[in-house]
Design a protein around this nucleic acid. Structure first.
Lengths: 203, 203
DNA sequence: CAAACCTACTGAACACTGTTCAGTAAAAAA
DNA sequence: TTTTTTACTGAACAGTGTTCAGTAGGTTTG
């Protein structure tokens, strides 16, 4: 009796169809300018149909948010091969910033927007945990190999994440108006380099 | 002929009335849940009236955003009396975080939300420039007195701002789910302390 | 003082939004 | 073949930001 299995497959495919259409529209026009009706039009179904596959708009956004993490982990995977832990840490930071610049809408959804986190609320944030785990691990190695002094690992990881995230958050939300437009990305890169130096020798 | 002056005063007062009502509602319910109609109801005028005083909703949000900066500068003023530049820098950072935690909605509007920056676009961001200027100044003093090595001042100031901003941005947008709720603020404070140490001696 | 003008304001509308639900046609099970 | 289940939709609801013709009342002019 393969019917229920086929139905399940169909259902999963419909979810993917919706998500792909949504992603396409979101990345093209920004999250604020895409409505459920737009997505429905794109896949040539009624708006109500989308609600058979997603609880509400936030649920849909959360699914895209998860996709974003899959993509990000994919891009980070090669970095895990770098043997020197500090060098690996630096490259992870650089990739974080690059990911934000190259996929601004997706990054926004993953780390800045409120919407996807509202669906979570109580439950815990598996993707976040995993990604943060990667960072904690590399920081731990830096301490083990004597690159960093021994501190609370999680607090240290948190400090590094925040420092790097700060650039991206200010950049994406247009708070770098004090720098000429053309310089903004350079400012971020230079700032990051300076931060890496500071980690090793202080300011 | 004081009539035109009185009209001007009336007009200014109406703007204040609208802004105060808006601020009250926004701080109570969050920006996403307050509509122009809600604000109009609060001041017992028609919604259309608000458009005689503000171009659109973003314009109104931008006015509140400016108010936020006035309030923030007010809270920062006493810190400028601290003579030791590094100590002053540390206290400024601590105040930034405190301001974010104590006025989450306002801080969000000032440093995270898209809406108020959309009205700016071309023009430059005076409030941001000023606030950043304060930071640049204290960093410069830290370099002059030999607390920091000499680097590009603006890049250094930017690095420090980003590092501190990162905590607030992740905290306010609920990306600290990997820590138990009760610890989140401690994590921020400990992280900040660690960052200050790192600035002086490296990690 | 009366007539003209101007200004502040409003009701109603427009084109949207997310979301729900009764109803329908087709597929699956009996 | 009949019954049941499933997938889908049109239409509606209650809300949003925004615009605009129309009006009442204060201000200026003849």
């Amino acid at each position: 009796m393969g019917i229920v299995e086929r139905k399940e497959r169909d259902r999963e495919e419909m979810r993917k169809l919706i998500l792909s259409a949504a992603q396409k529209l979101f990345l093209a026009n920004g999250y604020e300018k895409v409505s459920i009706r737009n997505i429905a039009d794109e896949i040539e179904y009624s708006p109500a149909t989308i609600y058979l596959y997603f609880k509400d708009k936030n649920d849909l956004l959360f699914a895209l948010h998860q996709r974003g993490f899959v993509q990000m982990v994919e891009e980070f995977r090669p970095l895990l091969l770098i043997s020197d832990p500090f060098e690996r840490l630096v490259e992870m930071g650089r990739s974080y910033i690059r990911f934000a610049v190259e996929n601004p809408e997706l990054f926004d959804l993953m780390f800045i927007m409120n919407a996807p986190m509202d669906t979570l609320e109580k439950k815990d944030w598996v993707e976040g945990d995993q990604a943060f785990g990667l960072l904690v691990q590399v920081v731990q190695e830096c301490m083990d190999t004597g690159v960093f002094r021994k501190h609370n690992v999680e607090a240290t990881a948190m400090m590094i994440w925040s420092a790097i995230h700060g650039y991206t958050a200010l950049f994406l939300r247009k708070r770098l108006g004090m720098f000429p437009e053309c310089d903004r990305q350079t400012v971020m890169d230079d700032g990051f380099t300076l931060f890496c130096q500071t980690l090793r020798h202080g300011l």
